[in-house]
Structure formats: C-alpha cells, structure tokens
C-alpha cells in the first residue's frame, strides 16, 4: 500500500502537463471569454446609463417647455379677460354717458317747456289781471 516507485514522479510530470494543457484549452479561453463578456456588459451599461440621462434631460426640457407654454396660455387668457373687461367697462361707460346725455336733454327740454309755460302763464296772468282790473273799475285805465 505504501510502496513508492516511479509512479510518483511520472504522476507529477503528467499533472504538470495537464496544467499546461488545461491552461491552454480551458483557463485562458474562459478567462478571455468572461473578461470580454464583462467588458460588453459594462459597455452596454454605460451606454444605457448615457441614454437614460439623455432621456431624463429631454423629459426635463419638455417639462420646462410645457410649463412655459402653460404660463403663456395663462397670460393670453388673462390678457383676453382684461381686454374683455375693458371693452365691457367702456361700453357700460358709453351707455351711461348716453343715458346721462339723454336725461340731460330731456331735462333741458322740460325746463324749456316749463319756462315757456311760465311765460305764457305770466302773459296770461297779465292779460287776466288787466281784464279783472277793467271789469272792476269799469273803466279803462
């Protein structure tokens, strides 16, 4: 069982040959393949990360544009509302002015007619009083 003989050095030699063979046909190609795969994965990951950051930038930009547009539209709406308000106010003012003018005219006419009526009334009072006088005195003055 414990007989050492030429098996020992020959086995050692054979094992060294096996190390050399496996190094050539197994370890080196596998190492290369795994390294290449790692490189490939890393490269892809870097690219994907770049693309992701680009997409995020684009999204941010769109967001900003969207916010800008919303603000513009709001300002347009506000402007339109202000315009409409102004027009309404102007029209209301005009209408009020017109009605005021009409009222004043009517007042003037009224005053005039009143005046006229007064003068005619006075004239009539004059003539009536003269008639009353003449009737009372019986004799022309």
């Amino acid at each position: 069982m414990f007989d050492f003989d030429a098996t020992l050095p020959l086995m050692a030699l054979q094992f060294l040959v096996l190390v050399a063979i496996l190094n050539a046909v197994f370890f080196k190609p596998m190492m290369k393949a795994l390294d290449e795969r790692n490189d490939y994965i890393r490269r892809n990951q870097v690219e994907a990360e770049e693309r992701l950051s680009k997409a995020e930038n684009l999204a941010k930009q769109y967001q900003a544009e969207l916010a800008e547009t919303r603000r513009q539209s709001q300002s347009v709406v506000a402007a339109a509302q202000a315009e409409a308000q102004k027009i309404v106010a102007a029209q209301i003012a005009e209408a009020q002015e017109q009605s005021r003018l009409q009222r004043e005219q009517a007042q003037q006419e009224l005053d005039q007619q009143k005046q006229e009526a007064m003068t005619t009334l006075e004239r009539e009072v004059d003539s009536l009083s003269r008639q009353i006088l003449s009737k009372l005195l019986g004799a022309p003055v």
């Binding site: 069982m1 414990f2 050492f4 003989d5 098996t7 020992l8 086995m11 050692a12 094992f15 060294l16």
Partner: peptide
C-alpha cells in the same frame, strides 16, 4: 494511491 497524492502535495 499514495503516489498520486504525494506527487500532488509535493507539487
């Protein structure tokens, strides 16, 4: 076989 294991250990 002890020869094999001794060979490996000496290596």
């Amino acid at each position: 076989d002890i020869n094999t294991t001794v060979a490996l250990a000496l290596l």
